[in-house]
Design a protein around this nucleic acid. Structure first.
Lengths: 226, 226
DNA sequence: CAGGGAGGTTAGCGGTCGTTAACCTGGAGG
DNA sequence: CCTCCAGGTTAACGACCGCTAACCTCCCTG
C-alpha cells in the first residue's frame, strides 16, 4: 500500500499534468480543456475520471499531505527499529551541539538526530522530485471544499507536530512555539526548490540535496541557540 | 523620495486591498467587484484609478521588487558609511566562523557581516510587515504582461545578486552557484512568515524577527561549511 | 452663479469557463 | 454475432467576469 509499481493509469496521468499546470498558472488560470489536451484527450473527457476540476485539486492536495505524513511516520518507525543507522545512508552532518544525556520522555525514536536527518532527507526528496506538488501544497489550499480543506489542514498539522516533537527531542531547550515557527521556516527553506533552476541546472541533484540538508540543520541549530 | 508620509490616497488604498485579496485567493480568484467592495466603491469604479486588473497586479509586483532592491542598496550604502555599526541596533548573532583576513576584492561594504545582517533585517521587516506582498511576489509573476514581467525579473535578479556578492564576501570559500542557491533558500525561509500564525500570535514580532534572523545566519553558515 | 472635471453609479456586452447532454466506437464476454 | 460498457467525441447551456458606455453628482474655481 506504500508505493505503486503498476503502469501509470489514466487518472494518474491526468493528476500529474493537472499538478504541473496548476503549479504553473494557478488553479483558476488553467482550463479543463488545457488539462485534457495535456493528456491527449480534449475537454470534457476528463469527466469520465473525475467529478470536476475541484475534485482533481482535492485529490492532489489530500494525496500530497497523506504522502508526506505517512512517509514521515514510516521514517520515524524505521529509525526506531535500526538504532544509530541513518537508514538511507544519506548526508548526515555533524552533530550540532548534542545535549548532555537529558533523558526527557521521548515518544518513539531512539536517536533523535538520526530521525531528524531522516525527516529532512525525506522532505528534500519530495521537494526535489515533485516540485509542482510542493508548489501547490501551500498555494491552492483555499480553493478546496470545506471538508477537504479541513482534512488537508489536519494532515499538515500532524506532519508539523511530528517534526516539532522530534526537533524538541534534539533540542530540549527549544520552546514549543519557537520550535513550531522554526519548523515552518525550514519548510519554507526546503520548499524553495522551485526557485532553484530547473533540474539538471548548475549543481547536480545530490549536491543540491546536501546543501539544503546542511542549511536546514544549520537553521535548526541556530534556532535552538537562544 | 524614499518613504511617503501623506495620507493614504485612493490608489494606495485600492492597491493594499487588492494585494490582500490576490494573496488570499489568487489573481484569477478575485473579481474586480470584490476589490471595489473592499474599498467601499463598487465594481467598475476602479477604472477611474487603474487601466485594468492587470495594471494593479503589475504596479504591485514592480513596486515590491523596486522597494526591496532600493532598500537593500540603501542599507548597503549606509553600512558602507558607518563602519562597524549595525545601523539599526538589531539582532546581530555571533560571527559564524569569520574567515582569517582574506582581503579579496570587496565591491562596496566595509564590514560584510554587518551588511549581511542589515540585508537580513530589512528582508525580515518587509516579510513581517507586508505579508500579502511577500506572498504575491513569487506567486503571481506569470500573470504579468511580458514587459512588466521582464522588469520584475530583472529587479529580482539584481536583488539576488546583491545578496550573493555580500554573502560571498562573508564566506569567500562559497562557490557562486551554491551561494545563489543558498540565497534563494534563505528567501524561502524568511518568506515563510505568512505561515507563522497571524500577527499578534504566540511569539511577539520582535522575537519572531530575532528567530528568523538567527536561522538565516545559521543556514548561511551551514551552507558555507562545505 | 455657471461649469467642468474628478470620481462615482448602473446596465449591459462579449468572451471564457465548468459542466452537462447526446452521441459514437472499439473491444471483451456470453 | 450480438451486447454492452469504458472511454471518448462535439454541441451547447448557464454563469461569471473584465471592461465599456452612459449617466449622475458633488465640489472647486473663475
Amino acid at each position: 500500500m506504500a508505493t505503486r509499481t503498476d503502469a501509470p493509469t489514466r487518472r494518474e496521468q491526468i493528476l500529474k499534468e493537472a499538478a504541473r499546470l496548476f503549479a504553473e498558472r494557478g488553479f483558476h488560470g488553467v482550463g479543463v480543456d488545457e488539462i485534457g489536451a495535456a493528456v491527449g484527450i480534449s475537454g470534457p473527457g476528463l469527466y469520465r475520471h473525475f467529478a470536476g476540476k475541484d475534485a482533481m485539486l482535492a485529490e492532489l492536495l489530500v494525496g500530497i499531505s497523506e504522502q508526506l505524513l505517512t512517509g514521515a511516520k514510516r521514517r520515524l518507525a524505521e529509525a526506531d527499529g535500526a538504532v544509530g543507522r541513518g537508514s538511507g545512508g544519506g548526508a548526515a552532518p555533524e552533530a550540532t551541539g548534542r545535549p548532555a544525556g537529558g533523558t526527557g520522555r521521548r515518544p518513539t525514536g531512539r536517536d533523535p538526530e538520526a530521525v531528524l536527518d531522516s525527516l529532512i532527507e525525506g522532505h528534500i526528496d519530495f521537494a526535489l522530485d515533485d516540485r509542482p506538488l510542493i508548489t501547490l501544497h501551500d498555494r491552492e489550499l483555499d480553493r478546496l471544499r470545506d471538508s477537504d480543506r479541513k482534512r488537508v489542514r489536519q494532515l499538515q498539522r500532524q506532519y508539523v507536530e511530528l517534526w516539532v516533537s522530534v526537533l524538541r527531542e534534539v533540542y530540549p531547550g527549544l520552546a514549543e512555539p519557537a520550535a513550531r515557527s522554526a519548523v515552518h521556516s525550514v519548510f519554507g527553506l526546503l520548499n524553495s526548490t522551485p526557485h532553484l533552476g530547473r533540474p539538471g541546472s548548475s549543481p547536480g541533484r545530490a549536491s543540491t540535496a546536501e546543501l539544503l540538508h546542511r542549511m536546514a540543520r544549520g537553521a535548526f541549530g541556530a534556532a535552538a541557540t537562544g
